[in-house]
Amino acid sequence: MPKNAGTGKWRKLPNRIEGTVMATPNTPLWEVFIRSRNGLAHKHVGSLHASDATMALQNARDLYTRRGEGLSIWVVPSNAITASDPAEKGMMFEPAESKIYRHPTFYEVPDEVGHM
């Protein structure tokens, strides 16, 4: 997960470690997604730093596919991701939770009909 994902209105950045001098400039952060096999979706595997997209792809290759873990890689700038707020997960997901009639088991089909 990107540390800065989301709008930031609900979470201020945590305290910096005390006594640190920022001597080295920060390199942009990227999220890495890998398609592990034909027919599967890309899946988030982690993040890395790189100054541009080409280097992010090359670094992702070296960092996350040293043992043939992937057929395809996506890299996305971490700050391009908008995340939902975990503190509001109740409000966010409640509408789905209360609608049990969206599930097949809600409906009764006579046994004689067999599998449906």
Binding site: M1, K3, R16, I17, V21, M22, T24, N26, G46, L48
Partner: peptide, 23 residues
Amino acid sequence: GHGLYLYAAAETLGASREELVDL
């Protein structure tokens, strides 16, 4: 690679890799 996975995990807590390395 292990070092890099771990720096990335530490960064999710709000520190930057650069400042951790500098420490």
